[in-house]
């Protein structure tokens, strides 16, 4: 649906079109972007530098015991999981209607499609996730990622994305701010911690 302020629309488009703006070709983005010898090692380094933690798993079977080692998980009263059969959830995200009910989630286990070595970001979408608030409202996050899904740079990442979901995000470490005298503080509004579980 297009809103009814037609006159502003026409005015703006006409105002733009009355100007002759010299043409510049759209670049093709095929440059020699950085490629790391080991995207995996670079990813780990990048994520740690933005306040994230990385736990390497040998197989999914190890996830439960590694989660238990995390204080944030072990002490969590309300847990939620987007990884089937994992994360011993106490809260079924897709069963609730109102996202405000997510307010008390202490720990959420998420699954990422992609990791980016140059910046430690993971790509997640709301595919099958009823409330995207879960990415931001949980006090602590665990994220599962397969090492085979790590690319060197963001250009490669965008080549692999499919834009079919209503929401997707790159998340790079836990929430942070430096708005008070440039002192870095982890845990602004979103997750206070992010632990990435890396599958081979």
């Amino acid at each position: 649906m297009v809103a009814n302020n037609k006159s502003d629309r026409t005015a703006i488009l006409n105002a733009i079109r009355q100007h002759e703006v010299s043409d510049v070709e759209l670049p093709d983005l095929n440059a020699d972007w950085i490629e790391y010898d080991s995207p995996l090692e670079q990813f780990v380094q990048s994520l740690e530098s933005v306040g994230g933690r990385v736990v390497r798993l040998e197989s999914l079977d190890q996830l439960g015991q590694e989660l238990e080692k995390l204080d944030s998980f072990a002490t969590a009263k309300v847990r939620c999981s987007l990884v089937a059969g994992q994360g011993s959830p106490t809260f079924e995200l897709n069963q609730v209607d109102d996202p405000h009910d997510l307010e008390d989630i202490d720990f959420a286990l998420l699954s990422a499609e992609l990791g980016v070595a140059e910046n430690g970001a993971v790509w997640m979408t709301d595919d099958g996730v009823r409330h995207r608030a879960v990415f931001f409202i949980a006090q602590h996050l665990g994220v599962l990622l397969s090492a085979s899904q790590i690319v060197s740079n963001l250009h490669q990442a965008y080549q692999r994305l499919e834009s079919s979901t209503a929401f997707g995000l790159f998340m790079s470490g836990p929430s942070k701010t430096a708005d008070i005298e440039q002192s870095l503080v982890i845990g602004a509004h979103g997750a206070r911690s992010l632990t990435l579980f890396l599958l081979p």
Binding site: S46, S49, V50, V116, E118, N119, G120, A121, R130, R132, F136, L154, S163, T165, A166, F167, G168, L169, F170, M171, S172, G173, P174, S175, K176, A178, G190
Partner: peptide
Amino acid sequence: ATGQPITTYSSHFRGPRS
């Protein structure tokens, strides 16, 4: 902006929530 490799959250909005 700040010397970070990317902002913590880069959210892509593609239409309203259900």
